[in-house]
Design a binder for these strands. Structure first.
Lengths: 206, 206
DNA sequence: ACTTTATTTGACCAAGCGGTCAAAGCAACG
DNA sequence: CGTTGCTTTGACCGCTTGGTCAAATAAAGT
């Protein structure tokens, strides 16, 4: 039944997904139209619907493809590695992903902003489980005095916020800095933040 | 000509703006419909258009009202105050704003995500000028050794990212934490981050 | 060449969109 | 009470939307 897709199918499906990513990541699901996507993909609207049964199907395909790779960096966080290096490496990988896949970042941001109607379940199950697992590792490190005492969940949130901000708020960052590359200097700053936050204080803070 | 608005006008305009905030902040401009806003405001669509000439006008009114208060905390950052306290106070105020006005935060996020078509000019002029001014203050503090050496722009971005994240990604934060209040613990964590990042290192970090 | 299958499209549809308008309802005030 | 101006609405309009379909076209296999 499901044979290997022809070259034309591969090319057109890829073109549609890329075009859908462009459009959905900018306007959100409801704000995007099939005509926009079709034009961006260089296809007619009926032809587009020959490859995907509906607007929803394109969006779903994109979200699924996204979630596959999106959680990878966190999955790699290793409880047996060096605490500070593991966390900083996670932050760096997350920043790299934001730089290399800004459209995916904005697609995700749009979906969450709109109440995550299509992935709420995944967030509550898969994502929560993953984060809880890694949060426990971080908590153990903190308890062992290997890093500063920080709330693991908030630490993870802060990494998400600090890295995705450059992709999601790209326009603002560029407008304020006047730079072409919104990520310029972000890596060094993120390193400084993470190292400061994670370094245990010698004395006692109040 | 422009007399004092009647009580009905005040009530209905307020209801429309609140409804518009609800809808626009969730679906973005293009994804929102007049019918949605009208229903949320408890008015008929023609009646809504009796108070605002167009969908665009509602959106613009909301953005203007937003920008008025949005930049206030940064404006208050005082170059003559205590460096660490000034910056931490700014971060705290920003977090409070995100907690008290999450819809406004999401409205802004939506606008930026969609390329800021309606406020790009303001970002490039007013916001840039304000940020540049405050960045210089921070740079002076750093040069004087009163705070750690940090890129002022990235420091400001980090405060925006860390505070707005809880409002904009509310659904995700709640899903992962399982808590009702997405801001629980955020204040303490933000304090820790800011204090760590701003405290000058005694040794030299190559 | 011919048949089979995959691909593409123009024409079309019902529903939803932002917005208009004339008329009806309503409040205030003399 | 009557009239004047504010408020509300049902009906409507032209356009866009997501999606369908039958027919045309292009590949591929024989």
């Amino acid at each position: 039944m499901s044979k290997t897709p022809t070259r034309i199918q591969q090319r057109n499906r890829a073109a549609i997904l890329s075009a859908g990513l462009d459009v959905f990541s900018q306007y959100g699901f409801r704000g995007s139209t099939l005509d926009q996507i079709a034009e961006a993909a260089g296809l007619s609207k009926p032809n587009l619907l020959y490859y995907f049964p509906s607007k929803e199907a394109i969006h779903t395909a994109l979200l699924e493809r996204l979630l596959e790779t999106w959680l990878d960096p966190l999955k790699s966080l290793d409880g047996d590695g060096d605490p500070v290096e593991e966390i900083m490496n996670y932050a760096r990988r997350k920043l790299t992903m934001s730089r290399e896949y800004p459209r995916e970042s904005r697609l995700f941001a749009n979906e969450i902003l709109q109440g995550a109607p299509r992935i709420a379940e995944i967030l509550r199950t898969d994502l929560k489980a993953l984060v809880d697992e890694k949060a426990q590792i971080i908590r153990d490190w903190a308890d062992a005095g290997k890093i500063a005492t920080v709330d693991p969940h908030h630490l993870i949130f802060s990494i998400w916020a600090l890295t995705q901000h450059y992709a999601d708020f790209d326009v603002q960052v560029r407008a304020v800095r006047g730079t072409d590359d919104p990520f310029a200097g972000a890596g060094a700053f993120l390193d400084h933040v993470m190292r400061s936050v994670l370094t245990p204080v010698s004395g006692n803070t109040s």
